[in-house]
Design a protein around this nucleic acid. Structure first.
Length: 800
DNA sequence: GTAGATCATTTTTTT
DNA sequence: AATGATCTAC
């Protein structure tokens, strides 16, 4: 542990505050750091959020800062909300003036306050990824380009990636014709967004960054305002987010970056772990604090995690410790098929539940979403409640998006994306030809679809005009209405309700539309959009600003009031922003006690008493698309590290010899990560012989009945003196394989046979074909994958 | 304009 | 296997 001393000139921190009670020395040091750039390496389960919130509370309480002077950035709405909740629980503070939110949320706030200077319409709309994709599609179509050569998804990805590197179209280096066209699309896309008054997610950040970069006065204002900037999950920041941070944080700013390089699992979407090192260097960080005390997991689990992650070459270096004792060994189980694996999981879950463990305290983790299906059906058949995270989110459902599109048109009729989405939904006889004519007219005049309706002749033109009249009518009728009334009227008049009433499975959709009304209602109450919502006086937060010529700068408070008039943006506009920025929970209804199922990515930041990591097979986890280069494999390893560290008391790791994947049976070897786990922390459960439940219910039952958490299971007998048996060399052969093996006798090999090859190592015979000199075999090798070998050439030694 | 058929696709994902 | 997107036939 290395904590730099406070430099001379900083008074010793006031340590008498009750806020600081119960912090360990490292946490305390982090919370009470002097106002200078600092980096906190916060391991899994080390109390990171607590440090962050306590730090803010302490700064406020000791009068070192006012609420308006704090900025705290997170990645997810959930993290931001949690911070606010904890903070208000610690300190009675008005959070209105505080800038605590996601990168995108804060940018939104900034751009709403400076909409004029940003060159945006006052009620600009935000495109979510789906909207962005359809906008890109329209550009590609308008430019008459081949969608095979310019796949919309990839183009959208290119544009987002460029923006996240801080590059505008003319900044992108062009070396080949393909890129040149991509850049042209990018430019056309930008023009289109500009015309329609919409911005995508990356644009929120990029535009904020550019404004601060190009306007020294504005930059100076914000730098003066935010004495403290705190960044959560720093290892996940991308290039643009880092540049953005450098705009807000000047030489005087106390930036506190909190992150864990070992939990960086988003490189695939642009996260740069290197930002941590850059931060250390560029901000001249003199305070590096490591939080290595883990308050979550028992010893064996941490041993496994530490041992595994030590195989990564590029690390900042950190080892988790616990005082909770060794606890239970990590249970490893092998299965013949994914189906059997799922059955075993269900039986173990039943046993855990019988032992008194709430189902919500158990989690099933997997590498990819496709793996959830088998598990789900096994749980379903067993009648065990479960909850799968990661499906469609509320605001992404088709019917909800349709409804939102109508609302967006009411707010801004030039939003072509929304226009196209609902102009013929429900069907009103407006076909592709009519829309093509409309698009042509719009393109020629450079106007929006809405504005070009007059240019379309005949019946099509009349239908379009009728649609415009419908939206126009809605706008008039709902003027001054409450959000609820607006939405209800829209659902009626648009025909959406009628449409879904006649649909055969429209009942769910109607339910969701009703839920939309509820969400709006909740939003109005929560965000204080009632009649007495008032903008904060302009000079309350940053005195002296007006003199500097930036009256608008400070008005960027929660309710996004207009910078000049102080008038608050309409509830409808605010709700639409909310809908874009926060897609809603992607979980089923809370309440029922259910087993939690999710990908390892989705599990980051969560913890459970018992965790199952399933499908630990080479090719799946580590994923074959990532395991061929060192960086990819290291990220997979970090992912595994995240999976392991989710568990408090009990961890199961399982893998299967066969798995249905893309409609075919895939044969795999156990994950190479098993070789990187310490034998002493593992217990290999032998298949089938011990039966289900493993007889471990007792200590669990006692622990939970005592109502105690960590510590109560320490040294619970089972692990003392326990010796790891040698892992079974190769698994028993599935029955189907044994049956087919009889036919292929002759060369001494059979399907399912384990063999050894001098170059490829151990493998499993998957297929046998041909006879005599033509005989060949497909063999699944561990890290070399499946190979076809000619049996008269290849030297294979059967393994017993 | 819609229903049904065919075809490609299939790591991870927040805002 | 299952999903989504595009194409074809009415």
């Amino acid at each position: 542990m290395h904590v730099t001393n406070s430099p001379a000139g900083h008074p010793a921190p006031d340590l008498s505050s009750p806020l600081l009670r119960g912090l360990n020395p490292e946490q305390l040091a982090a919370v009470t750091l002097p106002p200078e750039p600092a980096l906190i390496l916060a391991g899994a389960g080390s109390g990171k959020t607590r440090v962050l919130t306590t730090r803010i509370a302490w700064l406020l309480q000791t009068g070192q800062i006012s609420p308006g002077g704090v900025m705290a950035v997170t990645f997810t709405n959930k993290a931001a909300k949690e911070m606010l909740t904890r903070l208000t629980a610690m300190l009675p503070v008005n959070v209105r003036g505080m800038w605590i939110g996601t990168f995108h949320g804060l940018c939104n706030r900034f751009l709403r306050a400076h909409w004029k200077q940003a060159g945006l319409p006052q009620s600009f709309q935000i495109l979510d990824s789906g909207d962005t994709l359809s906008a890109v599609k329209r550009v590609i179509k308008a430019k008459n380009l081949d969608e095979e050569r310019f796949v919309p998804k990839q183009v959208a990805w290119f544009i987002a990636a460029s923006k996240e590197d801080g590059l505008r179209p003319h900044d992108v280096p062009v070396h080949d014709p393909q890129t040149r066209t991509l850049v042209e699309i990018y430019q056309a896309y930008e023009d289109q967004c500009e015309r329609e008054g919409v911005v995508d997610f990356a644009e929120l950040l990029l535009r904020t960054y550019e404004m601060l970069r190009d306007d020294p006065l504005l930059r100076e204002h914000y730098r003066r305002r935010f004495g403290h900037v705190l960044v959560d999950e720093f290892q996940d920041t991308n290039r643009l987010q880092y540049l953005w941070l450098k705009m807000f944080a000047g030489p005087e700013t106390a930036v506190l970056a909190v992150g864990d390089d070992d939990q960086s699992i988003y490189a695939f979407r642009g996260a740069q772990v290197g930002n941590m090192r850059d931060f250390e260097r560029e901000f001249r960080v003199r305070h590096l604090i490591k939080l290595e005390r883990n308050y979550r997991s028992h010893g064996h689990i941490l041993d496994a995690a530490n041992h595994l992650i030590s195989h990564n070459a590029r690390r900042m270096g950190k080892t988790l410790r616990t005082e909770a004792g060794a606890g239970e060994p990590v249970r490893v189980q092998e299965h013949g098929s994914d189906f059997l694996e799922a059955q075993w999981v269900v039986e173990e879950l039943k046993a855990l539940h019988r032992a008194g463990l709430p189902r919500r305290e158990t989690a099933l983790l997997y590498r990819s979403n496709a793996q959830s299906r088998v598990l789900e059906s096994a749980l379903f058949n067993a009648g065990m409640p479960y909850k799968v995270y990661g499906g469609l989110r509320f605001f992404e459902r088709a019917e909800v998006k349709h409804a939102l599109a109508y609302l967006r048109l009411i707010e801004n009729c030039n939003d072509d994306t929304s226009y196209l989405r609902v102009v013929n939904f429900p069907a009103r006889g407006i076909g592709a030809r009519t829309l093509e004519q409309l698009a042509d007219a719009a393109r020629q005049t450079g106007r929006s679809l809405w504005q070009s309706v007059g240019a379309v002749p005949g019946r099509g033109g009349a239908s379009l005009a009728a649609f415009n009249a419908l939206v126009e009518g809605l706008r008039h009728e709902t003027r001054g209405a409450t959000l609820r009334e607006i939405i209800e009227k829209m659902l009626q008049r648009s025909g959406l309700l009628d449409f879904y009433r006649t649909e055969k499975d429209g009942a769910d959709r109607i339910e969701n539309l009703e839920e939309l009304v509820n969400a709006a209602e909740a939003f109005v109450t929560q965000e204080g959009f009632g009649k007495d919502a008032v903008a904060l006086p302009v000079d309350e937060l940053a005195p002296g600003l007006i003199a500097e010529g930036f009256p608008q700068a400070v008005a960027a408070v929660d309710l996004t009031p207009d910078a000049e008039t102080g008038e608050i943006v309409s509830p409808l506009a605010a709700f639409l922003t909310h809908a874009s920025l926060e897609a809603g929970d992607n979980q089923a209804q809370a309440g029922e006690d259910a087993v939690q199922m999710m990908t390892v990515h989705a599990a980051k930041g969560l913890e459970f008493d018992a965790v199952f990591v399933t499908g630990l097979e080479d090719g799946l986890f580590p994923n074959e698309k990532a395991m061929n280069d060192a960086d990819g494999l290291e990220e997979e390893r970090r992912l595994m590290y995240v999976a392991i560290t989710r568990a408090r008391q009990r961890l199961y790791l399982s893998f299967s010899q066969t798995r249905m994947l893309h409609g075919q049976t895939k044969y795999s070897m156990k994950s190479r990560f098993f070789d990187e786990l310490p034998d002493g922390a593992l217990k290999w459960l032998s298949p089938r012989t011990q039966g289900f439940g493993s007889g471990f219910e007792k200590p669990y039952q006692q622990a939970w009945q005592r109502g105690s958490g960590l510590g109560s299971m320490v040294g619970a007998g089972r692990t003392a003196g326990w010796q790891p048996p040698a892992p079974p060399s190769l698994p028993p052969v599935p029955k189907a394989l044994v049956d087919s093996a009889a036919k292929s006798a002759g060369h001494g090999l059979r399907v399912g046979q384990a063999v050894f090859h001098n170059k490829f190592g151990e493998g499993l015979v998957i297929t046998l074909e041909g006879k005599g000199p033509d005989a060949r075999a497909q063999i699944q090798f561990g890290r070399h994958g499946a190979k076809w070998l000619a049996l008269n050439i290849a030297k294979l030694t059967p393994i017993d």
